[in-house]
Structures are given as structure tokens and as C-alpha cells.
Design a protein around this nucleic acid. Sequence first.
DNA 1: TTGCAAATGCAATATATTTGCAATCATGGA
DNA 2: TCCATGATTGCAAATATATTGCATTTGCAA
Lengths: 147, 147
Amino acid sequence: MDNDRDAACERFRTLGHPATRGRGEILRILAESPLPLSPREIRERIPNPKPDASTVYRNLTLMVSIGLVRSVALHERSRRYEAATDGAHRHRVVCRTCGRIESFQPKRCDLSRIENDIRGALGFDVTDHSLEFFGACAACGGKKVKR
Amino acid sequence: MDNDRDAACERFRTLGHPATRGRGEILRILAESPLPLSPREIRERIPNPKPDASTVYRNLTLMVSIGLVRSVALHERSRRYEAATDGAHRHRVVCRTCGRIESFQPKRCDLSRIENDIRGALGFDVTDHSLEFFGACAACGGKKVKR
DNA sequence: TTGCAAATGCAATATATTTGCAATCATGGA
DNA sequence: TCCATGATTGCAAATATATTGCATTTGCAA
């Protein structure tokens, strides 16, 4: 939807950053993807003319810093990114055999107790966390671990 | 300690893999480090003559596959690795401002309920998880977020 | 001690990410 | 609407990280 992209552009302006087509596309693509995407995957999905790869990287960095996007670390060579929709707190489930990534929304995710422990023990102010699960997906059953 | 390295070599032989000095050193270094290390850091700590970087990578891959080592994903450019000591279940706490990594052992880490939910919802057999916390360390206080 | 499979070093290659800089664009004000 | 200006972009080059092929060397069981 173009509306998604327009809304995305609006968010940029509000935050004091010029809205460009590339930025709108990136945000739209992330908003529409159920799974976190790598910079390469994001760029591939942008219709021509595609922005340069460096532009994609620069914008992802910016978007993370202003809170529009989050990065997800999944033990891969490349980082992945997802839209920072506040509502849906989701976790990733990664198959060690085939690499498939699924998304899971827990009934409740209460790590605040642990976060408080950390604050107490290390004086560390926790702002967010990252929780991923690994194993074998339904299709791969109990097959051998790949790595 | 050399004993650490010898013990490490023993573990390789038991698992049917020739024990080499490089392998022993890598495992020793990981066992002695309180924090997960990058391949580069590991190699830097091996006394001369150092194995080639490619050897370090190959061995880390092997060690992960036979369960001697785990990889840790911390939103960085490079992966990190830690010894897979079964007993101590630890989590990482990363400062977004200065990049400092600390280690934290929770009083209890009960994610088995969530793991069961995942098994039920996705037919996904969860074998392990990865949980990292991000925020501002004591030294950095409430300073600006870096990325 | 010897033979062989496995591991290593080295060099080349692939992939991911970052940076400098000139050209171009987006936005607010005239 | 047009313009000035600072921010963004494309491009090319530089870095960082990781992987691979192959000839040589090594670990280890017999």
C-alpha cells in the first residue's frame, strides 16, 4: 500500500528528518514483513530505481537511532531489522537445520524481574532485551544440528 | 593453565577429532574468558605461533557443531563465542552507549513455559535460547543511545 | 614406525559494512 | 512559486569479516 509509505514519510518529517522515497520504502517493507529482514533483502524488495546499498545501511542506522526500527541478532552473518511497532512484542524462533525463521508472540513475556535483578546487581539500566529460541522446526523434526 | 588445554585436547579425542594445539588453545581461552569473544580476539590471545585466521574460523564452526562452544549474537558485526559449560546459564548485558559487555547469572531462568508454548503453537522443538539485555551501564548512566 | 584421514597455512575470493565526496533533493521562508 | 541551504544520495573505494581450494603437514591408530 502506498498509504503505508506516505504514513512512514510523515513519521520522518515529524521527527525532523527529510522524507525520501527510499526511507518510505524501507519502512513500508519492514512494516509489511512478518519476519525481520537483512539490508540486502530490504533493498531487493524496493522497486526500481533502488537506492544504493550504502543508503539503505545509512537509513537503517538512522531509523534504529530514532526508534522507528529495531535490529535483531540471529547468529547470522548479517543483521536483520524489523519495524519497531510498539504493540506486538514478538520473539524469533530459528531452525538450526534449515534456517527457517518463525515469529512467536508469547502469552506474556515478563522479564521485568530479571531486568530489576540486573539493575540491582550491575547498576545497569536495562531498556530492552532480545530473546530468540533455537531448535528444530516441524518440517526438520529431530534432524541433525547444522551448526 | 596448561591443564585446561590438555583437558580440552582430551575432549576432542573423545569426540573423534584429532587434538591440535590450536584447538586446545581456543578452548582454553574461551574457558578462561568471562565474556564471549570474537574470532579475532580469540586469535589475538593465542601465543605464537598463531594458527591462521581461517583455522580459527573452521575450528569454531566445528566446536559449535559438536557442542563444545556456543555462539552468542550481540548485534555486532562479528559473532562471539563462549565455552559451552553446561552448568552456568548466563546472559549478556550490553551497554548501548559504550559497548561494554557484562555477564549476568539470573537467580532462575524459567523460559520452559514459553518453550512449551512454542512447541504447541508451531510444532517447533526448542533446544536452546538466547537472551540478551541492552541498556546503559552504570558508568554511562543515562547518556545518549549510540545506535 | 608407518599410512592415511584430517587439519593446517596460504592465497584468493566472497560477503557485509563503512566512508569521502560531489551532485542532488527536500523543506521552510521570501 | 521560487530559492537558499543543509541533509541525503549515488558512486567508488576502503575495511572488516568470513569462506574456500589446494598443496603440505600433522595426529593417531595399527
